[in-house]
Computed example of a mutant assay.
Amino acid sequence: MRKISLILACCIAACTVSAQPGISEMQQAQQDLKSTFFSAFDLSLIVAGLFGIIGGLRIYKNVQMGKDRFTADVAAWFFAALFMTLAGVFLRAIFGI
């Protein structure tokens, strides 16, 4: 009785294993991830560039207005742009692309 139930359990397990996606589906999923990820990586670089430009313009305005304390603004805008750049690089490393 035990042998029959063990054989039946193995047959059921084999049927569920064969229902899993194949290699072609996995390659298609990897290709889809690569195509969408590069646009996300480019987007992170574009946003970092925008942070740099906007930050530079705001700091320039503060200097022209005669404000003495703008070092915190420089650091904030610089690290915002650096974070966006590193976020794209980090995601690229995580996904192995």
Rank of each mutant, 00 (worst) to 15 (best):
L86T: 03
Q31C: 00
I23G: 01
A29K: 08
A80M: 09
T85A: 11
C10G: 13
A72E: 05
M65V: 10
L43H: 11
A72I: 14
F70W: 15
I4Y: 12
K61D: 09
I23S: 07
A29L: 05
G22Q: 07
A48K: 01
M26N: 07
I4Q: 11
L33K: 05
A48C: 06
V89A: 09
F38W: 06
M65A: 14
I59V: 15
Y60K: 12
F38M: 13
T85G: 06
L45R: 07
M1D: 03
P21A: 08
Y60D: 06
V89T: 11
I97F: 14
A29Q: 12
M84A: 07
S24R: 14
F37C: 00
A76Q: 07
P21N: 08
M65F: 10
F41Y: 15
P21E: 10
L57N: 04
K34Y: 13
I4E: 15
Q30E: 09
A87Y: 00
M1V: 08
M84D: 05
R58Q: 13
G56W: 00
L6R: 09
V17R: 05
I53A: 14
A29V: 02
A19K: 03
S39A: 14
V74Y: 07
L86H: 00
G66M: 06
I94M: 03
L33S: 10
T85I: 14
I46R: 10
D42I: 02
M26C: 06
A48L: 03
I53C: 02
F37E: 05
Q31T: 04
V74R: 03
G55V: 02
L91N: 06
L57K: 09
I97K: 04
F41Q: 11
G96E: 08
M26V: 13
L33G: 04
Y60Q: 06
V89C: 02
R92C: 09
A75S: 12
E25W: 04
I46P: 00
I23N: 11
K3E: 14
Y60V: 06
R92W: 08
I53T: 15
Q31D: 10
K34A: 07
T36V: 13
I23P: 05
G88D: 07
Q31S: 12
A76S: 14
Q30W: 02
F70M: 03
T16V: 15
A76W: 01
Q31R: 12
F37Q: 10
T85K: 03
Q28V: 04
I53L: 08
F90N: 05
S44W: 08
A40M: 02
C15F: 14
I54T: 12
F51W: 09
R2I: 06
F41T: 07
T71L: 15
F95V: 15
L8Y: 02
